[in-house]
């Protein structure tokens, strides 16, 4: 564990908690893409199946359980409890256009052709594009609530910090995983447009459609 990975995990956890609290406290999921949340729940489910097969550390296990729990709780709040506030008219990104190519790619480019490894690879590729429905929704509505921009900022920073973690691990441990690194770079690049607006606009972020 290094400072970049810890900061990244905490930023990721903060994003997940911010979103869950925002929906719970305001009793509304307006401006939130349910489709992105479904993709994140799918990412965690396919990546953390090793909860059943291997124990890394208490930290690792606890965080995985928290991530999966919060992801499904968020999907539940959006599609069940606060369904009436779900912005279905603007949340129209076709996620099958993400899942199918990512699924195909995970079969073609992976480290090992075993079920767990392919599912892990699928989750890595899917996570890199999972935020697209959310960014698409904001570009359609033309604005995002301040709390939503904080959520997106923390979510974007988490993978950027992981990039530094991989540099650190390559330098000190000789460890590197090209699949995770390339997907992480793509994922971080997708946030750049948002980061620019978040930093320059401060308040209401309006992503030009």
């Amino acid at each position: 564990m290094n400072i970049f990975r810890l900061a990244g995990d905490l930023s990721h956890l903060a994003a997940i908690i911010i979103l869950l609290l925002k929906i719970w406290k305001t009793r509304s999921c307006a401006g939130i893409s349910g489709k992105s949340q479904i993709l994140f729940a799918l990412v965690f489910t396919t990546r953390y199946l090793d909860l059943l097969t291997s124990f890394i550390s208490l930290y690792n296990t606890c965080m995985k359980i928290i991530y999966i729990g919060c992801a499904y709780a968020t999907v539940h709040l959006i599609y069940m409890k606060f369904k009436a506030t779900y912005d279905g008219n603007h949340d129209t990104f076709r996620i099958e256009f993400l899942i199918v190519p990512v699924g195909g790619l995970s079969f073609l480019v992976n480290h090992d052709f075993s079920p767990l490894e392919i599912l892990w690879t699928f989750s890595i590729y899917l996570e890199s594009v999972a935020i697209l429905p959310q960014l698409f929704l904001i570009s359609k509505t033309g604005e995002a609530e301040t709390i939503t921009t904080h959520y997106l900022f923390c979510l974007g920073v988490y993978r950027a910090l992981y990039l530094f973690n991989w540099i650190w691990r390559f330098y000190f441990e000789g460890f590197f995983d090209m699949i995770a690194i390339v997907a992480g770079v793509v994922q971080t690049i997708l946030y750049c447009d948002f980061f620019y607006l978040y930093v320059t606009k401060g308040e209401k972020v309006a992503i030009p459609s």
Partner: peptide, 10 residues
């Protein structure tokens, strides 16, 4: 296989 990822990251 070099650089096997221990999957110790979240």
């Amino acid at each position: 296989q070099d650089h096997i990822n221990p999957k110790d990251e979240l």
